[in-house]
């Protein structure tokens, strides 16, 4: 029997499972305990697991992320929550200069089995210090594995797999996904891994590559394109580092066209990286240049209409897809 569950609750179940199964696991971050988590993901866990394992931290991102690294070195399996990717910039030093580099620079002597979770993305009118998508910054860094669960299954089951890694894993939870409710199958774990992308919708006419919070609008756009006789294949990247080139390449070999939808800014984005890889690996399969639809290159503005205009939307995805197929006439509906 499938159960209906929200992304938020699925994430909480994942945390609960990890805390139950492995005594080395603990959660720390700002307001994860008494407050219940800024996005209510960890609500109730303090009561269940106590203050040693559900650890409220002061406002000191650099300090507690670094402490997570140290605790991982010391034999624990910490899960560190950072409220939002914008605040993770205060901890970037520890993540990039220490967590990601330690195995290599110690000549393989030390390794950091740390999982860092953080919310990301725009869409709630939170303006320029709470809304950015910087996944690509982390995906740039060797030594990290970067995950972006966009479905209920992935929210429920990626965390445990992340905790089995012996090296740091960053998990991005798009703030717009927390309230999404969908059915979860009892055997969903079998469908989840942290290595490959997933084809969320099969299609023959073009490939839409996306991840995280852009998956729902991309799937919505694909449905509308289908009504116009265009069958789009939708790839959910899921794993932003290392990228699963093979699955993307196979899809391109079937559709010969690719549009990448990425909430980051276009310059230097994951979309840029994926586009380059398609060019390197499947150039002669392409019937048209790879296209990208990203956020406008502005700090995300507060006003609702400006924020909406800054982000890819189903309508702009449809428009870009049609343009890629050489269908530029005005579309209604």
């Amino acid at each position: 029997m499938n159960t209906m569950i929200s992304y938020r609750d699925a994430m909480r179940e994942a945390l609960r499972e990890a805390l139950q199964r492995d005594a080395r696991v603990f959660l720390m971050g700002e307001d994860v305990g008494m407050y219940g988590g800024s996005y209510a993901v960890s609500k109730g866990l303090l009561e269940e697991f106590g203050a040693q394992r559900i650890r409220d931290t002061p406002l000191s991102e650099l300090g507690f992320v670094g402490a997570g690294i140290g605790a991982a070195l010391g034999g624990l399996r910490p899960i560190v929550e950072i409220m939002t990717v914008n605040f993770s910039l205060l901890a970037l030093d520890q993540l990039v200069n220490t967590a990601a580099a330690l195995r290599h620079m110690s000549g393989g002597q030390f390794h950091v089995p740390l999982v860092v979770r953080m919310a990301t993305g725009a869409g709630r009118q939170l303006a320029a210090q709470h809304s950015h998508s910087l996944e690509g910054w982390y995906a740039h860094v060797p030594g990290l594995r970067v995950l972006a669960p966009a479905t209920i299954e992935d929210a429920r089951h990626m965390l445990w797999l992340a905790l089995q890694e012996d090296d740091p894993v960053i998990l991005f939870e798009h703030a717009q996904l927390y309230n999404v409710v969908a059915p979860l199958a009892p055997d969903a774990a079998a469908t989840v891994d942290i290595e490959r992308c997933r084809i969320r919708r099969a299609g023959r006419d073009l490939t839409l590559v996306t991840f995280g919070g852009m998956l729902p609008p991309t799937l919505a756009a694909a449905e509308q394109l289908a009504q116009q006789g265009i069958e789009a294949e939708v790839i959910d990247l899921r794993v932003l580092r290392p990228l699963d080139d093979a699955t993307i390449g196979e899809s391109i070999r079937r559709t010969h066209r690719a549009l990448i939808i990425d909430e980051e800014w276009r310059s230097g984005s994951l979309a840029a990286e994926i586009s380059a890889r398609i060019m390197e690996q499947a150039f002669y399969e392409l019937d048209a240049p790879v296209q990208r639809l990203c956020s406008a290159e502005v700090p995300i503005p507060y006003a609702k209409h400006l924020e909406a205009a800054a982000l890819p939307q189903p309508a702009t995805i449809i428009e870009a897809a049609r343009r890629l197929l050489g269908k530029q006439e005005a579309v209604t509906g």
């Binding site: 009118q125 939170l126 303006a127 320029a128 210090q129 709470h130 700090p299 503005p301 507060y302 006003a303 609702k304 209409h305 400006l306």
Partner: peptide, 16 residues
């Protein structure tokens, strides 16, 4: 209200 007459032209909102 996110309007053009706002002190930051609607870019900042309450927090900015």
């Amino acid at each position: 209200f996110g309007k053009s007459t706002g002190c930051c032209r609607g870019r900042g909102g309450s927090m900015h």
